[in-house]
């Protein structure tokens, strides 16, 4: 299962990087979204996906639980990446408004243009 997940994560990273290299600002943000999905799944998979273990709730009275620590880490990461993505999106929206373009290449500041 972990090996399959590693391949899926590879696909997520590939798409994310490809989008981040494109010109449209919106695509770049979509790329960062995919990248954070990939990172979250990576943390979870690498810590092990035990087949016969219960969810990390003590009420389950199970013999074995899945690892709770990576879940806590991912929860933190999800919230942070959401905050950053929201900020980035509004930044992009304001950039459209002020500059009238969403093409990253056109946003390039040149020496004589300040």
């Amino acid at each position: 299962m972990e090996i399959l997940m590693a391949i899926v994560i590879g696909f997520l990273f590939m798409s994310a990087v490809y989008l981040m290299l494109s010109k449209s600002l919106l695509r770049i943000i979509i790329g960062t979204g995919l990248l954070s999905h990939g990172a979250h799944l990576l943390i979870l998979s690498v810590s092990g996906l035990k087949d016969k273990a219960a969810a990390p709730l003590l009420g389950e009275h199970a013999k074995d639980y899945v690892d709770p620590l990576p879940q806590a880490l991912i929860l933190t990461a999800i919230v942070i990446s959401f905050g950053v993505t929201a900020f980035f999106l509004v930044l992009a929206y304001r950039a459209y408004q002020e500059l009238g373009t969403d093409n990253v290449d056109q946003m390039r500041g040149t020496e004589g243009n300040e």
């Binding site: 943000i29 979509i30 979870l44 996906l49 929860l75 919230v79 959401f82 999106l89």
Partner: peptide, 24 residues
């Protein structure tokens, strides 16, 4: 993968994110 809290958070946040994307 038996991560109920993560699933909840991810669901909510994904919804809000997509709404934000559509807004932009």
């Amino acid at each position: 993968f038996r991560a109920p809290d993560l699933a909840l958070t991810q669901l909510v946040i994904e919804t809000v994110s997509v709404a934000l994307f559509l807004l932009c």
